[in-house]
């Protein structure tokens, strides 16, 4: 069993949590004793932090819509198609027609990359997230 110190994702308190990993599965969560916020204590959400990670409903393959239905596809096809459509609509709408939503659940690094992608590649400032909700 391996304990990995990380940060809880369920609220803005940001408790320090150890995820317990065994054979490639996360099997438990425990509080960090010295962390300034958690101080050896988590709330009920934190204690069950690991439960959604291996849920059978997790998406594990890219999906693409064919004949109206979402079907599994390869990463290459999904990425190629997305890039082609984004480029087409960006160019046809004079950089005005694409909107991007970033996520308050993703990391800072990912938020940074997505806003850079939106501004530098899609050439628009149409980016926001659900902070207001």
């Amino acid at each position: 069993m391996q304990d990995v110190l990380t940060t809880c994702v369920y609220c803005g308190c940001g408790c320090g949590v150890y995820l317990q990993a065994e054979n490639g599965r996360v099997v438990g969560s425990t509080a960090s004793r010295n962390h300034p916020v958690s101080r050896n204590n988590l709330c009920v959400k934190g204690w069950h932090l690991h439960e959604f990670i291996h849920h059978p409903d997790r998406l594990t393959e890219p999906l693409i819509r064919k004949k109206g239905k979402l079907v599994p596809t390869s990463w290459d096809e999904a990425l190629d198609y997305t890039a082609k459509e984004l480029a087409r609509i960006r160019d046809q709408t004079d950089n005005q027609g694409i909107g991007v939503l970033s996520s308050a659940k993703c990391t800072n690094e990912e938020n940074y990359l997505l806003q850079k992608f939106t501004r530098a590649v899609l050439q628009t400032n149409n980016i926001d997230h659900c902070a207001r909700l």
Binding site: G12, G14, S102, S103, A104, C106, N108, N111, Y112, H129
Partner: peptide
């Protein structure tokens, strides 16, 4: 949400 502050800080 856990990283609302960060998403704002990062310019999203």
């Amino acid at each position: 949400q856990n990283n609302v502050q960060g998403a704002c800080d990062m310019g999203a």
